[in-house]
Every structure is written in structure tokens, then in C-alpha cells.
């Protein structure tokens, strides 16, 4: 497993999939929905963190589908306490291990400590505990599974739900276009804590995800990884399109893949040409009510955010999509 050291990790694209670990730490038999992008992400993150790790998990989809007493899908030592406190629990585990090692009660090197939670458990209710843990500098990695709403409780909006998306608490109607706010930038919030490693990742880009997790684990101090997790149930998308949608999110610039090492931004996947956002939005039923003004707004906002990111990364501009002037809507196109 550890043949992928930190120095080698820069060359992730030279490895073939058969060289990745065969061990399964998130085992089959869990109850996630068909086509769950999050379960896929969990599986790869668990492979990347390796055997010698302890996981603290927030309440949410992944907890519920994987840990029905007396069964478990987790081969790691794993603890679930509550929804909003996972970063605090992980901080406690890391601190507990530290003092026990100092007193000679457990051997070193210490296992990696990884906290995991959904976008609600991270960017809404768990933000305070996460901020505290990042600020205090605990040596742990926090992974956010971002499926862009409270899927476990039935697709309610979170601060991570994108503009225009239909959820059960941001329904489109005569006076609503769906989610009326823009997705909270959790990555920027994590970066603002001055922690050594922050990254976005996607299970649609397995090598990129794998090596970012390895880097996070090997970085002393706090690390934060934000994983876009396609949710066919909540996004109203076909279950066989999850990996494709993850790719489209990157190819349209909606969810760029990058890392921030000691405050320095770097794009890790650079599409030579950005596709129009409609390619990403169209296969998702949650956006089907949107009309041209909203679609144009999303396109403009996506490009503006992407330009800001490019500036931070000092990366060259890709070819931007030509904005359409057709009276296209998703509903008509679908």
C-alpha cells in the first residue's frame, strides 16, 4: 500500500488501476442506493487511507447504509457519535492516541485519523466543530461527501445545494426557482484556516482522488478533502450515469478538481475546453424546471468562479463555451 509515497504521488497518472490496492475496507452488503456515487467514493477513500487508520463518521447516508446493528460494512475501527460533531470526535481520537503513545501504552507510528461527513454535516450543522478542529491543528483528515442536499432525510436543501436545484424544501413554484442561493464554498472556508492541505476530489477521477487522500493522510496537521458525490436519488438522474455526471461536473467547470497546498492553489485536472453547463444540468431532473434566464445565470456564474480559481492557480485559460442564445430549456431538451 505504502509504495505510493508522498513524492511519488505527484505522478498519479502514470499508474494503472491494477496497481491500486485490492483490499476492500468498505465492504459489500451495505444498503446504499443503486448508482450511489458516495459509496463509490467511500470505497476508494478507504482504500487510499489504508489499513492503519481510524474513522469517525457523521450521521448521514453513509452511516445509515453501512452500520445497522449488529452488522457493519467497515473493516476499519469506526465510530459514529452524532451529526454535527464528527470533527470534534476525530480531534478527540487523535489526542487520545497522542497521550497514550506518549505514556508508552500504544506503539508508534500512530494510525491515521479520518473524519467523514456529508455536506449537511460539514457545511451546515458541523461547521463549528470542523472549524475548531482545523484551527487547533489536529493531525487528521476530514473528508466531506458532498451530494448537495440532505439526501438521507429525503432530499432537503443544504447550504451546499447548487443554485436552481429542486429539493423537497426548495421546491420550484410560482414564487420560487428552486434553491435560491449559491453553493457555499466549503473549500475556501477550509483554506481560510491556514491548514496545510485542502483538495476537491471526485470518484469519477479515481487516481486523482486516491493520491489526494494519500497526500492528506501523509501531511502532518489537518487536511480537508471535498468529494463531489453524485446522488441519483436526490439529483433525479439515471443510476448508470453517476460516474459520467462526476466527469461532466469537472468538464463543465461546475466542480473543478484542485488542491491547495499551504495556501497555494493548483488545478489537478485541466480540461482543455470547458463544456457548456447545460451538458451537466440536463441529465439531472432536479434542474428540469429551469428556463433560459436561470441557465444563463448559472453558466455565467460558473465561468466567473472558474476564472477566479484559474487566477488563484495561475493556470492557463481553457477554451470557454460559446454562450447559447437559443431559447433552450432543459424541459424542452429532455
Amino acid at each position: 500500500m505504502d509504495k505510493f509515497g508522498f513524492a511519488q504521488s505527484q505522478k498519479f497518472d502514470t499508474y494503472a488501476s491494477r496497481l491500486l490496492p485490492r483490499e476492500e475496507y468498505f465492504t459489500s452488503g451495505h444498503r446504499s442506493c443503486q448508482g450511489c456515487g458516495e459509496a463509490l467514493a467511500v470505497r476508494w477513500v478507504c482504500k487510499a487511507i489504508g489499513k492503519d487508520a481510524i474513522i469517525a463518521h457523521a450521521t448521514g447516508c453513509m452511516e445509515i447504509v453501512s452500520s445497522g446493528m449488529p452488522q457493519t460494512s467497515w473493516m476499519h475501527p469506526w465510530i459514529h457519535v452524532a451529526f454535527e460533531n464528527t470533527a470534534a470526535v476525530a480531534a478527540g481520537i487523535e489526542t487520545g492516541l497522542k497521550i497514550l503513545a506518549r505514556k508508552g501504552k500504544i506503539p508508534e507510528p500512530l494510525p491515521a485519523v479520518v473524519a467523514m461527513g456529508g455536506d449537511g454535516g460539514t457545511s451546515d450543522i458541523g461547521l463549528q466543530a470542523l472549524s475548531g478542529a482545523l484551527e487547533r491543528g489536529h493531525n487528521f483528515t476530514y473528508v466531506c461527501w458532498d451530494n448537495e442536499a440532505y439526501m438521507n432525510t429525503g432530499i432537503q436543501r443544504s447550504s451546499s445545494t447548487p443554485y436552481g436545484a429542486m429539493t423537497t424544501t426548495s421546491p420550484p413554484g410560482k414564487r420560487s426557482i428552486g434553491q435560491a442561493t449559491w453553493k457555499k464554498n466549503m473549500v475556501a472556508i477550509a483554506v481560510a484556516h491556514g491548514i496545510p492541505y485542502v483538495a476537491t476530489a471526485s470518484p469519477s477521477y479515481v487516481f486523482d482522488l486516491y493520491f489526494k487522500v494519500r497526500k492528506a493522510i501523509e501531511t502532518p496537521g489537518p487536511a480537508y478533502i471535498h468529494v463531489l458525490s453524485v446522488c441519483p436519488t436526490g439529483w433525479r438522474s439515471a443510476t448508470d450515469l453517476s460516474v459520467r455526471l462526476g466527469r461532466l461536473a469537472v468538464e463543465t467547470g461546475v466542480f473543478p478538481l484542485y488542491e491547495v497546498v499551504n495556501g497555494r492553489y493548483r488545478l489537478t485536472v485541466q480540461p482543455p475546453k470547458l463544456r457548456p453547463v447545460i451538458d451537466y444540468l440536463k441529465p439531472q431532473g432536479r434542474f428540469r424546471h429551469l428556463r433560459k434566464p436561470e441557465l444563463d445565470l448559472i453558466q455565467r456564474q460558473t465561468l466567473a468562479a472558474y476564472e477566479l480559481l484559474l487566477a488563484k492557480c495561475q493556470a492557463p485559460y481553457p477554451e470557454f463555451p460559446v454562450l447559447s442564445h437559443e431559447e433552450e430549456t432543459i424541459a424542452e431538451g429532455a
Binding site: 481510524i54 465510530i79 470534534a88 470526535v89 487520545g96 497514550l100 466543530a129
Partner: peptide, 14 residues
């Protein structure tokens, strides 16, 4: 809230 949550983590660590 985090105090007791962290205590749980520390106690779970042993």
C-alpha cells in the same frame, strides 16, 4: 458540545 464529543473520541481511543 464539542467538549463532550472530543471526550468520547479520547475515551474511545482508550
Amino acid at each position: 458540545h464539542s467538549a463532550l464529543s472530543a471526550c468520547i473520541g479520547m475515551s474511545a481511543a482508550g
